[in-house]
Amino acid sequence: MSGFDISRSDKNEVSVLHLSGFLDAHTVNRFENALQDLLKEDRYKITVNLKDLDYISSAGLGVFMGFIEEIREKGGDIKISNLSPKVYKVFDLLGFPALFDICEDEQEALNKFNSAQ
C-alpha cells in the first residue's frame, strides 16, 4: 500500500519537512497543508528532505511550483535535499534543477540558509 507521511522539525529559522512514501495527486493535499501551515506562521525558510520519498508525480512537483514565488517574495526559499536517483530523475526531466536549489543533504541546505543571513 502506498502511504505518505510528512513530519516537521524546526531548526532555528529553518523548518525542515521530511517527506516519505508516495507523493502523488492523492496525497498532495497533505504536503500543501504542511506548507500552508508554515506560511501562516511566517516561516519562509524551508528545507524539504526527500530521503525517504519513494515516488513523486507531477502533481507533487506542482506544489513546489505553487508556493515558490510567494516564499521567495517574502525573502525565503524552498531547498530540496537528499533526492534518490529515481526521484531526482523526475525533477530533472521536468526542468526543476534550473529553478530550485537542490542540495546533496539536509546539512548543505541548512548551511546555505545560514550563510545567506
Binding site: N29, S58, V63
Partner: peptide, 15 residues
C-alpha cells in the same frame, strides 16, 4: 481545479 492546477504546474513549470 486544485488537482488540475498541481499537475499543470508540476508538469509544465508554469505558475
Amino acid at each position: 481545479l486544485k488537482q488540475v492546477s498541481y499537475s499543470l504546474m508540476g508538469q509544465l513549470l508554469v505558475n
